[in-house]
Amino acid sequence: MISHVFIGVNDFDRAFTFYSAVMGELGHKLKFCERDKPWAAWMAEGMPRPLLLIGRPYDGNSAERGNGQMVALLAPDRRSVDNAYASALANKGSCEGPPGLRAHYHPDYYGAYFRDSEGNKICVCCHDPVTR
């Protein structure tokens, strides 16, 4: 259903550091980074789509976050949610809700919410039950 998600940023270097850390914790690989544009994209290993891209807006205007907009990234397990959240906060992100179960979504929903270094709201979540 999703081909790619593009998140506009103003400080590319700061955002690249932030997303490199978070995407690495989720096991995603850098597909490309073109600092002269600037833009960069990550993808799951061996999968051409979907992509998560960051970069300066094409129209040359300042990137602005949208109220009510959020990008939710799928984590392979709950530990990855915890690690991505910790990486986000260690790289100039801010907490919007620490990792934990949110049974009001469904019994196995485990997620964390944070703002990136530009103020965009991001969720990292896992829908799988704990395996013993």
Rank of each mutant, 00 (worst) to 15 (best):
A88G: 12
G111M: 03
D82Q: 06
Y113G: 06
Y85G: 02
K92Y: 14
A86T: 00
S94F: 09
Y113H: 11
A90W: 10
A84V: 04
S87Q: 15
H106F: 06
A84M: 04
S87L: 11
E96I: 02
Y113E: 10
K92N: 13
H106Q: 13
D108P: 06
F114R: 01
K92D: 15
R79C: 09
R78E: 14
P99Y: 12
K92F: 12
E96V: 01
A86P: 05
N91W: 08
K92Q: 15
A86L: 04
S94G: 12
R102G: 10
N83S: 01
V81P: 05
G97N: 14
G93W: 05
N91G: 10
S87Y: 03
C95G: 07
D108A: 05
D77Q: 12
P99D: 12
P98M: 07
G93A: 05
D108R: 04
S80K: 13
Y109L: 04
S80F: 01
H106D: 07
Y110A: 01
R115C: 03
R115Y: 10
D116F: 08
N91F: 06
P99G: 11
H104W: 10
S94Y: 07
Y85S: 01
R78S: 14
D82F: 02
D116M: 01
G100I: 08
N91R: 05
D108L: 00
F114K: 03
L89G: 02
D108K: 10
A90Y: 11
P99E: 11
N91Q: 05
Y105C: 02
L89Q: 06
L101G: 06
H106K: 06
D116Y: 02
Y109F: 12
L101D: 13
Y105Q: 08
R115G: 07
D108M: 02
G111C: 03
K92R: 06
L89P: 03
R79K: 14
A112V: 00
A84L: 03
E96P: 12
E96H: 14
H106E: 03
Y105A: 03
A103P: 13
G111Y: 06
Y110R: 05
